[in-house]
Structures are given as structure tokens and as C-alpha cells.
Design a binder for these strands. Structure first.
Lengths: 197, 197, 197, 197
DNA sequence: TATGAATGAGGATTCATTCAT
DNA sequence: CATGAATGAATCCTCATTCAT
């Protein structure tokens, strides 16, 4: 019984998180009520509360997912054998962002932006954001190191600083995409390439 | 009577906005209640509501300010006679951001991040954000044009794309500053400079 | 100074009552706020409150007027030398009601209906309504007496009861006019005439 | 579960409406606060709001009931086989009114008068009042037709007009009963009878 | 005296969470 | 175990009235 129950529990949990995410994408964390999530998930109030003991916990779960989703892909792609220049790394990251944003789950980047705001006043989400972003930015340190190694950038450059910039370009892209709506991975990458040379 | 009254009204309005901003910086838009603002402002409920007819309107006013405050400075500085390279423009912008963030009013960038999230589900704030950010990014188009003119970047570069990148670096800085806490205008600028050559 | 001031005061008072009546006709007693009355009257809050020391007092003044306005006309007309049969008396009364209702002041009968409701929970208005309606109904006792005298109705009829019926027909007319909108003095009177013979 | 739940829901709803009616009878629509209704009903705010989504909706429900309650009885009684003369019909109606008014539920006619006033500025209540009163008055058209048939009134009388008068006598009775307090079905009916002959 | 800005108690409504069935 | 009705504290907002200028 344990295994079946476990799968069942996992499926249920996902069902709730996905429903909640849909609500949050559509209305944001605060306009989304537990009643909305309950209705959207098709479960009962009691059921939802047996998986998440408060709205805060559920919100944290959604935020975690949204903030962390990039990670897996990053690891795979940036750790590949291909020549990973800063520009390529950025493009890959942005392309993933757009793919995720246009996926069938709805635009996860909207949840991400919500999470940024939430992190400022919510310990748990702050902690998640800090650690996930530190991790993510770490990949760009690798990228910077490689770039120094192959002479793409100066050997005495500070890889941390370069990583800050490369990583920092991503929120800027996400925000412009959502609020100004006129950026593309290709164009944005071209902009960076133009600056670099 | 008009003049005194007008000044008075303006002062009162500021008194409210400032109180509200303090609350929002401390707790975010949603945890801030009108009662908080009323208490913090030292006025009565009725008085506050005679200046802002709803919480939404007050929130919009704070968001407007937070999103727009950069503008004035930008105009002055970027339009100066000094040689304005992309790197210099960015540094100036970031220095302003940090100055504002560390000002006596409290860290306005926190309000800015709140506003990003809010813009996704609030027409009025979305409109403000769109227009202010389009304007702001416009300054970087000028910067890019100058850079093309003096050979800092390739003459056939797309100024819009370059501006997207330069402008995009700012939210990335703000976010890292708030969530990772380890970025400085100097370091971030150095990172960009290292990438550029 | 007294006289001028007195006229002035009377004029001001009327100005307020008329403004208030317009508001009440449009929105009812309860949706009408003192702010509405103040704006409509063109005076200041202080001025309005120097004539009526509370909303209740102002409301009472409007109700008084609305409940009592019929009286003057009644006295004049019913006390005339003409042959005043029950049917004629009713018609005259209804014609006056319609005239007043269609007057330039707006439909006063709407205020009357408000006053009925208000009288149930407002001592002052209840007192006014009782006395005005007792007075008004009194005229119909006269009418009944005359009718008994000239054989229009049985000599042993109870004039009070007849007056109750004749007077009672008026609210019924007012209400049907406002809510069903299809009654006229002529038709209603014809209905009574048909019943009588 | 459906059946129990349904009965339960109906009972709860009645519990709320009855509590609200008691409040309205005692204080009128506007002085009655939701807090009053909540306390009087013995339920919680949330419970009350799960049955009526606003005070307006609850008020409309009470008004509906008050305006419509006569109907059922009318239908039964006026449609009976007994000889239904205008005078008898009126008496029956008035007796029902008094019975209802003196019932254990409290004086519903007070709610009715409130509803008249409310109908003037509330679409929903206006609609209810119009349709219920049109219906009610319709019964008196039948009465008039019968009276024409058996010669009680002239064959060429306009039944609509006669119905307007007969129906119109009721509000007049209700109002005099509440405000002057000296009418009885018997006396009022006698007054009409005296006029008729 | 006249003004109208300010007051603040009071009212309607929401919603995260619980727990009896 | 699951359900979803019920809870009630918390929140936004209004408006009659006052009083400093």
C-alpha cells in the first residue's frame, strides 16, 4: 500500500501545485484565494490542506518551482562539451526561458516575478531565491572561466563580476518581455554581441 | 487661499505617500493595510481617503513614483556633455539606484520590485511601467547611438538591441542587490567592461 | 438688519430644503448623503448645519413638506361652495397629487412614500405623518357628512369609515402610479364611480 | 447527502431571512446592519454571506416575501366558489393582511411599506413590486368581472379601473393601520359598503 | 460669520482555516 | 479519510458632524 499511496500522494500534490500555478499566473499570489485553488484543483478544501498546511506553504512550493526550474536545464546545457561562450550561454538561457514561458503550463516567468516581490517579505521564499540564484549564477562563473581560458575575455577579469552581469541580463530580459513585450533571445543576444565587439 | 491650500494639499499628499511608501518597503503592497498607512501618516482614515479614493489608487501613486524616479536623474546625467559610453552610462544609472536605495526614504528599489509583480495584474501599474520603462530605455538608445558614432561599438549594431541589453542590466542589478546582496555598481560595471574587452 | 437677515435666512433654508428634496427624489433618504445635499445646494457644510443641526432634522423638514403639501389645497378646494360629492372630492385630490408630482420641483410623491417608510422608525416623522394624515382625513369626514346630507350615501353611514375609505384610496393611487404607472385621476375616479353605482 | 443538505440549506436560508425580517420590522432596512442580522440569526458572517452575497440580495429576499405573501392566500380565497363581491373580496384581503400583520413573525406590513420606498430606487425590488402587484391587482379584475356579471356593478364598467380602486384600497388600509392605527377590516369594509349603496 | 478639511466610529464584505459528519 | 459548511478576525471604505481658521 505504501507505494501506491506514495504515487497517489505525489500525483495529488502536483495536481494542486499545477492548479495553484494556473491561478497565480492568471491573478498573482495575492488575488489568488485558497477557494480559487480548491476549485481549480477539483479537490476539497480538506484535501488541499492535507498537502499544504497553509497558503504560505503552497505559495512557497510554487515559487520554489518557478525559481528553480531553470536550474536543471542549465546544468545539462552549460555543462555540455560544446564551446560555451558568454553570448552562447546567455542565448541558451533565454531560449529556455521563452520556451518555458510559452509552454502549455502557462507563463512561468510571471510566477517568477511574483516570487521576486514575495522574497522581499517572506523568509522562506527569500531563502529559496537566494540559494537558487546563487546556484544559477554559479554556472555563469564557469562560463566566465572558460571565456578567460580561451581568450574570449581578458585573463585577469573577475569571473564573479562577469557572472553577475551575465546572470543579471536574464531578469532584465524577463521583465522587458513581460512589460514591454518586444524582446527576443536572438535580438537581446545580438545586443550583447554588439557591445562585446 | 488658493496658494496656501495648494501647498497644503501637496504637502499632505506627500505625507501620505511617504507614509505609505515606508509601509510598503517594510511589508510589501499586500501586507500593508490602509490602517497601517493611516497610523503611519498620522492622519485620519477620512483624510487619507480624501486624497486617494482607494487603496489601489494609493498603491498606484507609490508605484508610479518608484518606477519613475530614475527618469529625472537619467535625463540630466545621460544628456550631459560628458563622454557617455555604455559602461559609463550604466555605472551612472547604478550609482543613482544605490543612492536612492540607501536614501533616508528607505529602499525604493523594493517598491520597484513590488511594482513589477503588481504590473502583471494591474492595468494602471502596467501602463505606468510600460511607459516609464520605454522612456528609460530610450535614453540607452541615445547612448548606443553615441557609442556607434565614436566607434565604441560597431556602426552596424542595432541601437534598440543594445539599449535592451543595457537597460536590462539594471533590473538584474537591483534583483541581485536585494536577493544576493553582493553586487556593487563598480563591480557590476567592471563585469560589463571585462566582457566588452 | 433683522428683517433682511430673516428673509435671507428663510431663502437659505428653502435653498437647502429644495436641494435636499431633489436629492431625495433622485436617491431616497438613505442614499442621499449630506455631502450630496451640500453640493446640490451650493452652500458649505457649515452653512447647511447652521440651518439643520442634523441630517435627521433636514430629513424631517423634507418629509413634513411632502406630507403636508396636500393640505393647503385641500382646505381651499374641499371647503369651496361647489357640490362636493365623494367622487368629486377624490378626483380633485388626485388631480392635485398628479399636478404636484409632475411639477418642476420633481415628483414629491416619491418623497411621500419615503416618508411613510421612515415614519415607521422615526418618531418625529411618525408624529408629523399622524397629525397631517388625521387632518387630511378629516376633510373627507366633511365630504362624507355632505354626502349623507344630500342623500348621496345612506344617512346612517359612519362618516369616519367612509372617510377612511376615501382617504385610503389616495395612497393606493400614489403607489400604483409610481410602481405600476398606469393610473390616472380620471380612470381611478371612474373606477370608484362604477363601484358606487 | 443531497436531500439532507437541501433541507438543511433551505432551513438555514429561512433562519437568516426570518432573523433579517425581525430586524427590518424593528428598525427598517437601513438601520438594520449585517451585524444585527448575523447576531439575530445566530450564525456567523461567513455563513450568512454564503446564502446571500450582499445585504442588497438579502433585503431583496425579504422584500420579495413581504410583497408576495398575500398572493397565495388571494389565489385560494378569491378563486373560491363563494359569491365574491367587491366588498367581500376586499374584506377577505384585509383580514388576511391583519392576520399576517399580527402573526408571530411580526408585522410584515411594515416590511411591505419599507419595500414600497425601496422600490423607488432599487431596480430589483421595483421589478418584484411591479410584477407582484400587477398579479395581485389581476385578481380584482376577476372580482370586477364577476360583479359585472351578477349586476353588482354596471355592465359597462371598466374592470381594470374597478380593480385599480379595489386594489388601491389596500395600501390605504395598511398605511392608516400603521400610522393612524384606527382602521379595521370591518370598519373599512363598511365604509366602502356605505359608499356603494 | 462662513468655510471645508479633518475626524473616526461604524458598516459591508472576504477568506484562510478548521472540524463535525 | 474526505468533505465542504462554518467560522470570525481582518480589511476596505463611508459619511455625519465638528471646529480651526
Amino acid at each position: 500500500m505504501p507505494k501506491v499511496t506514495d504515487e497517489h500522494r505525489t500525483a495529488r500534490r502536483s495536481q494542486i501545485v499545477e492548479a495553484a500555478r494556473r491561478c497565480v499566473i492568471a491573478q498573482g499570489f495575492h488575488k489568488t484565494t485558497m477557494a480559487d485553488v480548491i476549485k481549480e484543483s477539483g479537490l476539497s478544501a480538506g484535501a488541499v490542506y492535507s498537502y499544504f498546511k497553509s497558503k504560505e506553504e503552497l505559495v512557497a512550493a510554487i515559487a520554489d518551482e518557478a525559481l528553480g526550474s531553470v536550474d536543471q536545464v542549465f546544468r545539462a546545457i552549460l555543462a555540455s562539451a560544446e564551446p560555451v561562450t558568454p553570448v552562447n550561454a546567455l542565448r541558451t538561457a533565454l531560449e529556455y526561458v521563452v520556451t518555458a514561458a510559452e509552454g502549455p503550463e502557462g507563463d512561468v516567468t510571471r510566477v517568477g516575478v511574483q516570487a521576486w516581490a514575495e522574497a522581499l517579505h517572506n523568509e522562506a521564499i527569500y531563502a529559496t531565491a537566494s540559494s537558487k540564484y546563487a546556484l544559477l549564477r554559479g554556472y555563469f562563473v564557469d562560463v566566465a572561466d572558460r571565456a578567460k581560458a580561451d581568450g574570449t575575455i581578458a585573463a585577469d577579469a573577475d569571473s564573479q563580476q562577469v557572472a553577475q552581469v551575465l546572470f543579471g541580463l536574464i531578469p532584465g530580459f524577463v521583465l522587458q518581455r513581460l512589460i514591454l513585450g518586444d524582446v527576443t533571445p536572438a535580438g537581446y543576444t545580438a545586443g550583447l554581441a554588439a557591445l562585446i565587439r
